[in-house]
Design a protein around this nucleic acid. Structure first.
Lengths: 215, 215
DNA sequence: CGATATACATACATCGGTGTATGTAAAGAG
DNA sequence: CTCTTTACATACACCGATGTATGTATATCG
């Protein structure tokens, strides 16, 4: 068939990636054939094999387009010399929820990573990327909580490491639950309530106000 | 071939289930053929098709043997009329960590559910079971935290629902992280530190002691 | 304005997996 | 002691998916 111009080829590549994303999300990675992806993208398998070595390469390319929520938080929280570390983190946390809630591509890709693929053999390093992101987030959070403790902002009942861990576990739980169970609750509102009350327990007690209810 | 006695047939069934569990865990559900399972179990595919209708039925049967950590916690925490609900929960939480850490079958099956299968089509109700377990756990925890609030055991900074949610998210995060990342930390010790400090924030402040470090 | 590389489509060979049909020897019922 | 049923093993037919080889029309470059 007619050879496409270079920009048209780029668009073909995009269409393949988008089609793969939709089908991986809808049918799972293992249950999606290159034939189906080609059809969804309006090309043939020849085009896919031209742009990508095989299924795994296609899958990897799809992932490279998206940042994981963990990576997002690390980047956002990098601003360290802040006078109010806990306040910064609290805002970053809520931002991360809003970012995920607003970006459907991110939702699909993260959901694929969480529930629609099996991490084995050639996919092992995909898991590794998530572990690296988690580790980086954990280290970064621990650093910030340590700053908060040194500033006297963190109550002594919480050790910086454990506070960082519980916070990270809660955030990931919120992301995962929301995606796993069909986005059946208001991620931003409900998540904000969790974030706020947890951070309230991190801080020295203020004149007590009534707790915020979940969304 | 020679027909086995009824008890021998039961054992064959067990061997098939065990083989499936090991291979699903090692290679993923989609990447494991019935041929492989048969070989691992020392039988032929004929035996598998005799005992199970197909792969999905085999997978389901494998799951039925095991209780999920969530289901475990719900059962453990059912004892409600306790004078110290928060103390009860704290113990139940640590028990659940110890139970998971001690039972390799449980670890494999839960890991399969989390990272080694794709929830689609005929597998949708498998996800449903997890969602039901999570929902039940959530409801149960909320009830207990409400009791704690009514007893004055829960500080007013935490609403019972949000406290239950954060606690549940943390617990699931601990289970998942431990399994996902190759059990690379001491689940019981590290988990206990998280549980303890979170529950300390739930309770009215005692004469402050130094926080416990993570394991 | 050829020559060549590009961007695919088409065609083919292969293979592993599934489901089912059939064989069969022993267990259990009467 | 037979007859039937059980508990498998064996054999077969049938895709569907993969990978590769090949065709081919057109950009693009010198």
């Amino acid at each position: 068939m007619a050879r496409n111009t270079k920009s048209a080829a780029k668009e073909t590549r995009r269409r393949i990636l988008d089609a793969a994303e939709r089908l991986f999300f809808a049918n799972g990675v293992a249950q999606t054939s290159l034939e189906q992806i080609a059809e969804e993208a309006g090309v043939t398998r020849g085009a896919i094999y031209w742009h990508f070595a095989d299924r795994v390469a296609l899958f990897r390319a799809m992932l490279e387009d998206v940042r994981l929520p963990q990576e997002d938080m690390v980047e956002q929280a990098a601003a360290c010399g802040n006078p109010d570390p806990l306040g910064l983190l609290e805002r970053v946390a809520c931002d991360s929820l809003a970012t995920l809630a607003a970006d459907e591509q991110r939702q699909r890709v993260y959901a694929i990573l969480l529930f629609r693929c099996e991490y084995l053999g050639e996919m092992a390093d995909v898991l590794q990327r998530q572990q690296d992101a988690d580790t980086a987030m954990q280290a970064n959070l621990a650093r910030i909580f340590t700053m908060a403790r040194d500033d006297g902002a963190l109550v002594p009942q919480w050790s910086p490491d454990v506070a960082a861990r519980v916070f990270a576990l809660m955030m990931r739980g919120l992301w995962v639950d929301w995606l796993r169970y069909g986005r059946s609750f208001d991620l931003v509102a409900h998540g904000a309530a969790c974030v706020e009350q947890l951070f309230r327990s991190f801080r020295r007690a203020e004149p007590a106000a009534a707790p915020v209810e979940a969304g």
